[in-house]
């Protein structure tokens, strides 16, 4: 049964009245053993993230590493240009005048850190992603406005269409939708 149904559906989507209801439902679904779940809210909502046990992400580390790389690149570029490759002797002033290299080093640190952080955030989120099965549910357009949704994906080993739907309905949603793939 399960194997015949699973490919035809992306999963189930339940809509809730408020962020509080969504938090409670997410907690219940997680505790019931579902892992391929995701909650959708119109604003960042930390209790929901906690209910899904989403804490850690790699974005800060990307920013740190790329910031260090950016700063070293900036300093190395100036050192190589001003000391090794094209030294200019102006009144016998030192070639390696490192304090004068700090502003550009700083700017490049920020530039690399900011851009790689944003690009990293987007790539880790799988964006840009013009198509997603959830957009097949008409009601899902409320997710960016005032709707609170919880999706359970069919690829979850515990997923069973009838049973999961019954379970979601027991959590007092406004409605439960089947999501076409």
């Amino acid at each position: 049964m399960k194997h015949e149904e699973a490919p035809q559906l992306f999963g189930l989507l339940a809509e809730f009245d408020s962020a509080d209801d969504l938090t409670n439902a997410t907690k219940a679904v997680y505790d019931a053993g579902y892992r391929k779940i995701d909650a959708y809210t119109p604003f960042p909502c930390e209790p929901v993230m906690e209910a899904m046990h989403v804490h850690h992400n790699w974005v800060p580390l990307i920013v740190l590493v790329m910031g260090i790389i950016g700063g070293s690149t900036g300093f190395a570029m100036q050192y190589w240009g001003s000391v090794i490759h094209y030294p200019w002797n102006i009144g016998n002033r030192p070639f390696y005048s490192w304090p004068a290299f700090i502003p550009v080093t700083f700017e490049l640190t920020v530039l690399f850190a900011a851009f790689s952080g944003v690009i990293g955030m987007l790539l880790l989120n799988g964006l840009p992603q013009p198509y997603h099965p959830l957009f097949n549910v008409e009601q899902f357009e409320r997710a960016s406005q005032d709707g609170f949704f919880l999706a359970v994906e069919a690829t979850d080993p515990k997923f069973d269409h009838a049973e999961t739907k019954k379970f979601l309905e027991s959590l007092h949603p406004k409605e439960v939708f089947d999501v076409e793939p």
Binding site: T26, Y40, P42, M121, Q129, A143
Partner: peptide, 20 residues
């Protein structure tokens, strides 16, 4: 970019927003 408001996405989004 096809933003859906997923909790996982918001989590990374908030990190980068504070870092920026």
């Amino acid at each position: 970019m096809g933003w859906r408001g997923s909790a996982r996405h918001w989590n990374r989004y908030e990190s980068i927003y504070m870092i920026l």
